[in-house]
């Protein structure tokens, strides 16, 4: 392909990335060092106050809560996605395709709408409680939502595909012969799993964890809808700075901080010897 043609083909992507990703990011980085006025405006005076403010105990508590919920959600997704991926990878190719398509189908519906769907299932007079009561398993309705459990259920449901895809990707790449070799060398099933299968899928596990953990602490509408606004995650905090408190500089600083944390996690993984070959976007 000649150079001009190459340039023309790449141009839309480059323009898209510049206008919708790169410039906005630069702008966010820029205003995170500016001062806010009391009416939601930005005063163009350089300050690092926004970054210092992040370490205020009030906000640290938000980070801590987010991290805890994020970790639980990530762990739950991992524990569901891993066995599922192994199950799928052992099926015939066309069944594998079907199952993975089924995993992707929820993406056809807006995730906000799907979250509303969960309200129907989880609320006090909801389907779950009704069924459990009619089966006389419980006497009084359980509180599935408007608490951290609701956030946990909602996030785990929404983010599960992001865990399944990278893990399935690396699990399905394992050469069956390697597992046979382990059996042949005398490894029992548990050893095969922990010494051969899991280590060969570290990159998929890490990728899935990142893809789950970061959105988990950044998604605000699930915490709003299913958590009843009681628990604030980083995502809610950032949203509030932009839409409620109208403090764009502080919101920007929080966003940049979240990006840095993500970046450091990836670096850490690389340093631990991880390969990024199926990390795709990173």
């Amino acid at each position: 392909m000649n150079r001009n043609l190459k340039f023309i083909c790449l141009a839309p992507v480059v323009i898209y990335a510049l206008i919708l990703i790169f410039f906005p990011l630069i702008y966010i980085l820029f205003i995170s060092f500016q001062t806010s006025d009391n009416y939601g405006g930005i005063i163009y005076v350089f300050t690092i106050y926004n970054y210092i403010r992040i370490f205020d105990p009030v906000y640290l508590k938000v980070f801590f809560n987010s991290a805890i919920i994020g970790l639980f959600v990530t762990l739950a997704c991992l524990l569901i996605a891993y066995p599922f991926s192994i199950f799928v990878s052992e099926k015939k190719p066309h069944i594998q395709k079907l199952l993975i398509t089924l995993v992707l189908i929820p993406f056809l519906t807006n995730s906000l709408i799907r979250t509303y769907g969960w309200i129907v299932l989880l609320r006090k007079e909801g389907i779950f409680n009704t069924i459990l009561e009619s089966l006389s398993i419980i006497d009084n309705p359980l509180s599935f939502m408007y608490n951290n459990l609701g956030i946990f259920i909602g996030l785990t449901y929404t983010l599960l595909p992001f865990m399944i895809l990278p893990i399935y990707n690396s699990v399905s790449k394992i050469d069956k012969k390697v597992i046979e070799a382990a059996r042949d060398l005398g490894a029992k099933p548990l050893n095969i799993f922990f010494k051969v299968i899991v280590p060969s899928t570290y990159s998929g596990i890490f990728n899935g964890c990142i893809m789950t953990f970061i959105p988990a602490i950044g998604m605000f509408f699930i915490a709003d809808l299913l958590g009843g606004g009681k628990t604030m995650l980083i995502g809610n905090l950032i949203k509030n700075q932009f839409l409620v408190s109208r403090n764009w500089p502080f919101g920007s600083a929080l966003s940049i901080f979240l990006i840095i944390v993500t970046f450091l996690l990836v670096r850490l993984y690389k340093k631990l010897g991880g390969k990024l070959d199926d990390l795709g976007g990173f």
Binding site: D175, K177, V178, E180, A181, A182, R183, D184, L185, G186, A187, K188, V196, P199, S200, Y202
Partner: peptide, 20 residues
């Protein structure tokens, strides 16, 4: 089971453990 047989196999594409 293969684990209990005193034989070992060399596979066509070696099937080495790439993470070790």
């Amino acid at each position: 089971a293969p684990q209990k047989r005193d034989v070992n196999t060399i596979f066509q594409n070696f099937a080495l453990f790439n993470h070790m």
